[in-house]
Amino acid sequence: MTAVGDLDRKPAEAVRIAVSHAGDAALALAEIKRQLVTARPSFILLFVPNPLQPDDVARALRKSMPDTVVFGCTTAGQITPRGYEDDALLAIAFQRRHFRVASILFEPISPVSIADVVSQTERLVAQFRPTPGRERLALVFADGLSKQEDILMAALEVGLKDIPVFGGSAGDGLRFERTEVLRNGEFHSNAALLLLLETDLAFSGLGFDHFQPTDKRMVVTRAVPEERLVLEINGSPAAEEYARLVEVPVSELSPTIFAENPVLVRNRNLYHVRAIQQIQGKHGLTFLSAIDDGLLLTLGRGKEIIRTLDAGLAVRDKDEAPDFILGFDCYLRKLEIERKGLDGEASEQFRQHRVIGFNTYGEQHLGVHVNQTFVGVAFFRPKGVAPL
């Protein structure tokens, strides 16, 4: 076991962090509990690596922390105080003196009942009365294979009104078989978890990618929107046309190719990534965001990813660096970074900027579901607490 103090030489003031690399859920939770023995959490976020089975984690959690409020999800990788990892059980204990939380589970979310999501969210907001001098924000964790995040986020935006919301879609390594969210000691698939937080910390939302549009355009000419499946692009089989545009044989299409050659959708003057998940059948392409007939797509080209990462994370509050950044980073970004041999540099950026979080199957940023994007919340030390 590696002690957290060895990982995080300058510990955050508002959270406590615990990490275990044990391959057994009971041993991993026992290590987490020991590392958090001095914490006084309002709640804990638990990000589960692919090697651990959610059912085993749930059983161990009920035995080791029966009286602790724990939320979380399965992941496609973790961002610990070391940076990128794949086999780390990561726990973030939000200190009681700085945070208050309320939660709701939407289940099932496929299909989403917009009216139910709006009404339940409005009820939660009304019951979670604000404290003077404190601010509220929301976090959302959704089943990353539900294909419902776009509609869910639109409904949450209505229900939350002026409360900002950030989050990530649960992952499953690179298996794409089953993703789950955690609430009250139980994991749930086909579900989404909404956390309403109140804090005395100042915070700032982050959202950035590293792509710019090219002059290569595509029109979706045949799609199955409810499955996020594109069958034809520019009147040709989707996989063949995409491969032609990125100038590789269809046989070489892979998650890495998709990561480095995303398609973009323009919204006014901004471009959002519509990431490709995988080939479906012989010629179809499954996407990680909403897709429809007639949608105009633009092939994207990457900018220098480490430089944009550093610039995007360099947020300040009156020249003060964040106490910590809770980060939701797309797994496709991690794939590209690893293929280019830049994972060490990216991890160093995360360490310098105090980022902790997980790799997602999609990101939620201020009411919009996006892909291949880093989304986060930077929390700053409460006033009167001297920086380390």
Rank of each mutant, 00 (worst) to 15 (best):
A3G: 14
G5E: 08
D6L: 14
D6E: 14
L7Y: 04
K10M: 10
E13C: 05
E13K: 05
R16I: 02
R16F: 03
I17F: 06
A22H: 10
D24E: 15
L29R: 07
K33W: 00
R34A: 13
V37M: 07
F43H: 11
F43G: 03
L45G: 08
L45F: 12
L46N: 12
F47I: 00
P49A: 11
N50R: 14
L52H: 10
A60F: 12
A60H: 07
F71W: 04
T74V: 11
G77A: 12
G83W: 10
A88C: 13
H98G: 02
R100P: 02
V101H: 09
S103W: 03
S103I: 00
L105H: 13
V117L: 08
V118C: 08
S119M: 14
T121S: 13
E122Y: 01
L124S: 13
P130Y: 04
R136S: 13
L139E: 00
A142V: 09
G144M: 06
S146M: 04
E149S: 10
I151T: 13
V158I: 14
D162T: 13
G167V: 03
D172Y: 06
L174E: 15
L174A: 13
R175A: 15
T179H: 07
E180S: 14
V181C: 05
V181Q: 03
R183W: 01
R183E: 09
F187K: 08
S189F: 02
L195R: 06
L195E: 03
L195N: 05
D200I: 04
L201V: 00
G207N: 10
D209G: 14
A223Y: 05
E226C: 03
G235F: 06
P237A: 06
A238D: 03
A238K: 00
A239V: 07
E241A: 11
E241I: 00
Y242H: 06
L245Y: 00
V250W: 07
V250H: 03
E252C: 01
S254I: 05
I257R: 07
F258M: 07
N261R: 14
N261V: 00
P262N: 13
P262A: 10
R266H: 08
R268G: 08
L270N: 14
H272A: 11
V273A: 10
I276W: 05
I276N: 03
Q278Y: 03
G281H: 02
G284V: 06
L285K: 07
F287W: 02
A290G: 08
D293H: 12
L296A: 15
T298P: 06
I306P: 10
L309M: 15
L313W: 11
L313N: 12
K318F: 11
D323T: 12
I325P: 03
D329G: 11
I337Y: 09
L342Y: 09
D343L: 11
E345D: 15
E345K: 15
E348H: 14
F350L: 09
G362W: 02
Q364P: 03
G367F: 04
R381F: 07
P387E: 04
